[in-house]
Amino acid sequence: MEIKKETVEYVANLARIELNQKELEKLSGQLEDILDFIDALKKVDIKDIPPTSHILPMNNVLREDTPRPSLSHQAVLKNAPCAKGNFFGVPKVIE
């Protein structure tokens, strides 16, 4: 399958990753090769085969509604690249 540069740009925007022109070109080619390889899957007969999204036959994993201590304020903001008062700071969101 041909992977156009626009497709890579679209996907990179969804994933919020900036790519330079060189990366963009290189990745188009590489993703095309990888997807060609993956296209082998098209040969598999998957009619009536259920998908496996969880490998263990588990269900209904629940916890009791019992409060547990939260993190200390210091621990919460310790790793923050930008903090103001008790908040995390980000560049202004324009709505």
């Binding site: 994933a15 919020r16 790793n79 923050a80 560049p91 202004k92």
Partner: peptide, 22 residues
């Protein structure tokens, strides 16, 4: 946002995401 290395040359929120991750 909560942790990790933020780009210092970003302009606005989406650019911050894209540059930091790029």
């Amino acid at each position: 946002v909560q942790y990790g290395c933020r780009s210092t040359i970003a302009n606005g929120l989406i650019d911050m995401y894209k540059k930091s991750r790029g």
